[in-house]
Write a protein that binds this DNA or RNA. Structure first.
Lengths: 225, 225
DNA sequence: AACGAAGGCTATGAGGGTTAGCCTTCATTA
DNA sequence: TAATGAAGGCTAACCCTCATAGCCTTCGTT
């Protein structure tokens, strides 16, 4: 029925995302986006409720792309290698999209439908972490890893690592430590079995490692022969 | 010489901070701040270069207060307890100042003088972590902890933990695991000594734990008697 | 008493978001 | 074939915001 459309919601979102990433949040103006897609500002309101709606659409686009990148990174089947690959892909994506990435978690209000999106975007990662840390701890372990990765990347992008040192080394150090920490629930029984077999200690906490770190508990137990 | 000042930079910053925290970034207008301190908007420009300068001052104020809160939290001398106390204080501060806290690391450009501020604000924490992880690893370890804490808090404040589960539990889990992971470089020798004394293994890696997590290394060594 | 600087004010302009209301196009349909 | 009407564009206009220009008042200093 209508006249031929000169633009589309997708084109508007793409232009907006580009503008946002290239020139920052302040440069993301309705006039600017309109000009980029070849129409005048008021025409955008036929497809987008308002500017904040445009921002939401842009960030959803970024989030979807990030999800795809993560899914693509986890291919090999070995949970440790997959977790590492996903962490690398995550960081690489953030480096490629610094502005929009930083904004993704800056939204104060969780968008409606965010839960479904969240489930979808974390499914592969959660499955991998469940293999690493066990199903009971998968959620907490995943939150540990994601929180660290996100925090590290945000600080890195914001230029918050001002004390010198090798940031790359800090990333590797952190990733190693965290992947190891997450696997401890699995590793400790091996240790315990080995030590128990050697008769170092009479009684050891088995699976019932409390909220205190299991390594700590084990080490304490070992010092009380 | 002048007429009596009706306001001050401090009052402007305080009013701006309050407005920002209470009603968000969009409500932080020059008119709004001016009205809160009892003058007209143009008068603010006698004390503040422009709006972005005001934002900078507000965030510096927040950062200074956070530094004080952290310093005050670390009193007891035991590095583990101090690290826990600082982590709690950090999170509590963020919960008390959610908007401004989130903005602190959102600044894309590092402010000039940020390095001096960074050194000051992290001194106590770095000292504590150095006791925990050793001076060589202090910086990487501190970055691990801060990145995790910041990432966790940002996600928490943004409402990004949508998959259910107990967020409090995830925080405790993460803190335990990370503090343990950071201490491993110190703990392993104890373990090694205990195990060695018991004659479980002949040869063990001593200090030369590679980039792979030390716990993993130890566990592998224990399985090869 | 005059000076002059600090610190207020009004007026104003530029730029951005958004709405109102109109016009053109063109697939559908009588 | 001609009328219809909705989609989608446009201009004009409004309001709000930041920011500057330029003026006026105050009051310590000289």
């Amino acid at each position: 029925m209508p006249a031929h459309a000169q633009t589309s919601t997708d084109a508007i979102v793409a232009a907006g995302r580009n503008l946002l990433e290239e020139r920052g949040m302040e440069a993301l103006t309705m006039r600017g986006v309109a000009s980029a897609v070849g129409v005048r500002a008021p025409s955008l309101y036929k497809r987008v409720r308002d500017r904040s709606d445009l921002v939401r659409l842009i960030l959803e686009d970024v989030a979807d792309e990030l999800t795809s990148a993560l899914d693509a990174a986890a291919g090999c089947g070995d949970p440790v290698a997959d977790a590492r690959a996903m962490a690398s892909a995550y960081r690489a994506f953030a480096h490629d999209n610094p502005v929009t990435y930083s904004l993704m978690f800056a939204a104060q209000a969780a968008a409606p439908g965010g839960k479904a999106r969240s489930i979808r975007s974390s499914a592969t990662f959660l499955r991998t972490i469940a293999e690493l840390a066990g199903p009971d701890r998968a959620l907490s372990a995943a939150r540990l890893i994601v929180a660290w990765a996100h925090g590290f990347i945000v600080m890195e992008l914001a230029g918050a690592f001002l004390l010198g040192g090798d940031v790359e080394e800090a990333w590797e150090f952190g990733l190693d430590r965290i992947l190891t920490a997450v696997r401890q629930a699995d590793e400790v029984p091996h240790l315990v079995a080995a030590v128990e077999g050697a008769g170092v200690v009479g009684e050891l906490p088995g699976r019932s490692l409390g909220s205190v770190g299991s390594m700590e508990t084990t080490s304490l137990a070992l010092r009380t022969p």
